[in-house]
Simulated assay, not measured.
Amino acid sequence: MSSGSSSNFSSGSRAQRRTFEYGRTHVVKPKGKHQATIVWLHGLGDNGSSWSQLLEMLPLPNIKWICPTAPTRPIALFGGFPSTAWFDVGDLSEDAPADLEGLDSSAAHVANLLSTEPAEIKLGVGGFSMGAAISLYSATCCVHGKYSNGDPYLVDISAAVGLSGWLPCAKDLQNKLRVSQEAVKRAQTMPLLLCHGKVDDVVIYKHGEKSAQALEASGFSNMTFKSYKGLGHYTIPEEMEDVCRWLSVNLGLEGTRS
């Protein structure tokens, strides 16, 4: 199942409103009892289809996967050449200048996709590389209760996963969350899983490690950071097995097939 959609997103002045045209959304229906829905986000230059095929093969029959495709936009990293991307980026690291409008737009797109799920279904977000960046950014917006532009974040995320990624706006996170005792409490209970290959030559391992440290320093005490020797900028069965185990535990999945 797939569909296209667009999102009007305003950041700051209404006169500067931009429309991001999202590509096709691929949905993998649960094979067993539907207990959780996870939006899974692809990396730079990819699309939702490739990940939906991998996720469909995982032994997680109670999860519905929603795999959207990012808008095609000019990317600073590619000298302005257009690519599918969740936000503009000049450098794949936690220190890079943040495209807040792009980050907020994609985080809002994820929240919109989750907002129509039944009330009893647990909601999650995950992703690879740039998709992991949006996954982690969405988790911080959920904990903070709002996007960077001040709009309220209205979805309750139960778990977030980031593979081979980084945390945008890492430097500002601690100060952002400290303003509210409620946000501090939410950060302590939000389950996060970060996985990174030691020999990643695209998003360097130290950026994943620094992002995990920034999350921990900001009060995300229910966080797991796993590293993999010899792993580059891709995923391997061992890593996906770890993701499956972690999701089963943190989402309380029954693991029975119908």
Rank of each mutant, 00 (worst) to 15 (best):
S2D: 06
N8S: 13
N8D: 12
F9V: 06
S11N: 04
K29T: 14
G32A: 12
K33S: 12
K33H: 12
H34D: 06
T37N: 10
I38A: 10
V39H: 02
V39K: 03
W40Y: 15
L41Y: 06
H42M: 06
G45T: 02
G45E: 01
G48Y: 02
S49F: 12
L60N: 03
N62K: 11
N62Q: 15
N62C: 10
N62W: 12
K64S: 07
K64Y: 04
I66C: 05
I66D: 04
C67G: 02
P68K: 00
T69S: 15
R73W: 00
P74V: 04
A76G: 15
T84P: 08
T84E: 01
T84R: 13
A85L: 03
A85C: 01
A85E: 01
F87S: 02
G90Y: 09
L92F: 15
L92W: 11
D95Y: 08
A96E: 12
A96Y: 05
P97S: 11
A98P: 00
L100N: 12
E101G: 04
G102C: 02
G102H: 08
L103R: 00
L103D: 05
D104H: 07
D104N: 12
S105Y: 02
S105E: 09
A107H: 00
A108Q: 12
N112E: 14
L113I: 05
L114W: 10
L114Y: 08
T116E: 14
E117N: 09
E117R: 05
E120I: 08
G124C: 07
V125Q: 03
V125W: 01
G126Q: 04
M130V: 06
M130Y: 06
S135V: 02
Y137E: 08
S138A: 15
A139L: 09
A139M: 10
T140K: 10
C141W: 05
V143F: 11
G145N: 09
N149P: 03
G150S: 05
P152A: 12
S158H: 15
A160L: 11
G162N: 06
G165Q: 04
G165N: 01
W166C: 01
W166N: 00
L167E: 07
C169F: 01
A170C: 11
A170W: 13
K171W: 05
K171H: 13
L173S: 03
N175E: 15
L177R: 06
Q181D: 14
K185F: 06
R186M: 09
P191D: 13
L192M: 02
L194K: 05
G197I: 03
K198R: 11
K198Y: 07
V199E: 14
V199W: 03
D200H: 08
D200T: 08
D201V: 08
I204L: 15
Y205V: 11
Y205T: 03
H207M: 11
K210G: 09
S211K: 07
A214E: 04
G219P: 12
F220C: 11
F220K: 10
N222I: 02
M223W: 00
F225S: 02
K226D: 08
G230R: 08
L231D: 07
H233D: 09
H233S: 05
Y234S: 15
Y234G: 13
Y234T: 14
I236P: 03
M240Q: 12
E241D: 14
D242Q: 10
D242S: 07
D242A: 14
D242M: 06
C244G: 01
C244E: 06
S248K: 15
V249R: 13
L251G: 03
G255A: 03
G255L: 09
R257F: 04
